[in-house]
Write a protein that binds this DNA or RNA. Structure first.
Lengths: 396, 396
DNA sequence: TAAGTTTGTCTAGTGAATAAACAAAGATGA
DNA sequence: TCATCTTTGTTTATTCACTAGACAAACTTA
């Protein structure tokens, strides 16, 4: 969380300390009041009073006693992850993945809806149906559905409008407004790569890292930037269009208007187009991987070529950001065995030593759930935040 | 400023509010206590007491009374920019620029030392001499020299070690340690582009912008990133090596080991090399500009070509960061009349509309002082920060 | 069983902010 | 000119969150 210039008073102190206590419980549960006091540096009495408020708000639970360490046995505290639920959605190009998660980001219900017609009306109906289904089937809880979030493969403004979703053929869809109007709940709309980055940071392979870049490699390439532990969105939310970074000056023209864009050479689309040229009929990533597994040299070399181009872009990313991790996600990740070595080889050969030494290349740990869990994390974070705010507001 | 997880208590509240009051005075001086209370939202009494402490610490001054707005005339408060001085240095490849600044970043003394031998011992002697000169000639003040900072064209660790300064031929120079040992003062060592970015943000063309990218175009290209209003340095401080971003896959080999690096095509070095190929003898940026001014078509087209290549890289930057400003600094900036149109043309043609619409391309307002004033800004910020800390510490 | 340890609560005290009263200094208008 | 209104800045009483330390409860160890 960032703090802009603001005035500080005891309300803020309490709010921040309460957040700190809750955060400590989330991260280290089960944990006793005494241990929280030790870790945070807060006084035991302060922790006691904040914990008792959190208990009143049903955000945490007491769970019996823990092991004695030579004295009175501690009362262990747990996050009450069943206090509310999120509805989190990954809106893809051919399907919608919808999940209901608890407040710890655990998936309770999962549902997929395929679609062939990407007309807005059609997709919207599927979307509403999925959300309605989740609302109906969510367990009863203290706070109910605490928010709905959607990850979208497109350019999203900070106001939650889809400016452009090229692979869906959508322009200027005020999705956030539509969902707010219909459901009267907190709504989060986020770019699919941004959400994926946050998902991996919160629940995936990036949990210990504050500087990570998530490359969503699918039909195109989108990138989510976690810098200083926070999602970086740029001035209006359009950061991470690294798929349209030129890696061949005056190379092939991209539909975006630019030339030599990275995603023309390193995306799933590039892979499948080149596979066709090599004589594969109706290739898919899966079919090409199968070809590799049965020893097809053409397929293996094709993946190496794509991996090499991915490596060129990732080398750029390493030079630009000096990240700790670069994570490959989305549909291309399943080819990791065939592309990762090529990526690493290119980085090894081309990246500057200082930057190269720090960085780890990983595949998304959450597989196809990166985006949906990132969305859940945004919603959960927003819930705890506004929940605190409103409690402060009503107390005043 | 970022706040990591920490406990909050009234000491912190006071510290932050005092910082807020001081910051308000710096930004809006001359200003009355009453106006500060209005702007910050703090109570009049709180402001009064914090202001009186700042007066005691000689960090601010009262300056007579202002105009009445229908009642008692206000007592105006000013920053006491003469409470201390910084020594700020831009360590270049052929010269050292040293300045003494007050706490508002105003240059009091400026001195340049040319050198031809870039041997560490020789440069170090020049550096020490310049610093000693500034110390001797600084006006007496409450806090004296509050810190020394050096901007270096190279890779600097967060610990202030120069890992590599290619154009000086230096490796592993523990500059911070050397200066700390010698001067026993707060020392800041920072990459020249990072400092330039901060200089333009604090005192230059970027004062109203929180998302800006500063491209230092000289022999090579280095980039400083201001994201969310803060300098972004990456995991170990090596961000912004965008000069070594590939814009021609498998293009010319760069001395960094990578291929097709941006700075091979868009730097001063590229300009001068190509000028030689075009028949210019001993070309310099200045001589080439003069050629342009007397209508030399070759020179004009050369700058256009360099500008075009700069535009390719800047288009990438725009796609990656969605910045509000891109600022061209360092030696190439004086050719603005001949490169900026080409840069803008390339952006206009190639950048994605959403990102393109927001961005402004500027030339560094501080000219050759961007780096040195950025260094000063770091030192000043550090002074106010540690000054507050220590006051809190001694009060406790 | 006694002594020591750990946990969690309670109480008194501290310090920083706020609200409100107040004094000082000027503006305004009959 | 003088009474009234405005604005500025200080002072005072009050509030609130945290801290230190006392204390009771619960457990371990010898």
């Amino acid at each position: 969380m960032k703090n802009v210039s603001q005035t500080w008073n005891q309300h803020v102190v309490k709010k921040e300390n309460k957040a700190l206590v809750l955060d400590t419980i989330i991260k280290r549960a089960p944990i006793s009041r005494a241990t929280i006091a030790q870790i945070t540096g807060l006084n035991k009495g302060t922790v006691s009073s904040l914990v008792s408020e959190l208990l009143d708000e049903k955000l945490i639970n007491e769970s019996g006693t823990g092991e004695s360490s030579g004295g009175r046995r501690p009362v262990m505290l747990l996050l009450n992850e069943k206090a509310g639920y999120t509805i989190s959605i990954d809106l893809g190009v051919t399907q919608i993945l919808a999940v209901l998660t608890d407040l710890r980001g655990t998936i309770i219900i999962e549902k997929v809806q395929q679609f062939e017609n990407d007309n807005l009306d059609v997709v919207q109906t599927h979307l509403y149906n999925l959300i309605d289904y989740m609302i109906t089937h969510a367990p009863t809880s203290e706070y109910g559905i605490v928010g709905i979030g959607v990850g979208v493969p497109g350019v999203i403004t900070t106001e939650g409008e889809i400016l452009l979703a090229p692979n869906l053929g959508w322009k200027k869809v005020p999705l956030k407004q539509m969902l707010v109007d219909r459901y009267k709940l907190p709504i989060i709309i986020e770019n699919e790569a941004n959400a994926g980055a946050y998902g991996e940071k919160m629940y995936g392979v990036g949990q210990l890292s504050n500087e990570l870049i998530y490359a969503s490699v699918s039909i195109g390439i989108g990138v989510g930037l976690i810098l200083d532990g926070n999602l970086y969105k740029g001035l209006r939310g359009f950061s991470g269009e690294i798929g349209h970074m030129t890696i061949e000056k005056d190379g092939r023209v991209c539909r975006c208007g630019n030339k030599g864009c990275w995603e023309l050479y390193a995306s799933e689309k590039a892979l499948l187009e080149q596979a066709k040229e090599l004589g594969f009929t109706h290739p898919t990533i899966t079919s090409l991987i199968e070809a590799c597994e049965s020893g097809n040299e053409k397929a293996i070399r094709l993946f190496e070529k794509i991996g090499d181009y991915l490596g060129v872009g990732i080398t750029n990313i390493i030079h630009i950001f000096n990240p700790e991790q670069v994570i490959i996600g989305n549909s291309m990740q399943i080819a990791d065995a065939y592309i990762i070595p090529a990526i690493k080889k290119r980085i090894e050969q081309n990246a500057i030593g200082f930057n190269k030494d720090d960085v780890h290349i990983h595949v998304a740990k959450l597989k196809h759930h990166s985006t949906v869990l990132g969305i859940a994390a945004f919603t959960i974070e927003n819930f705890y935040l506004t929940n605190r705010e409103s409690i402060i507001a009503t107390t005043e």
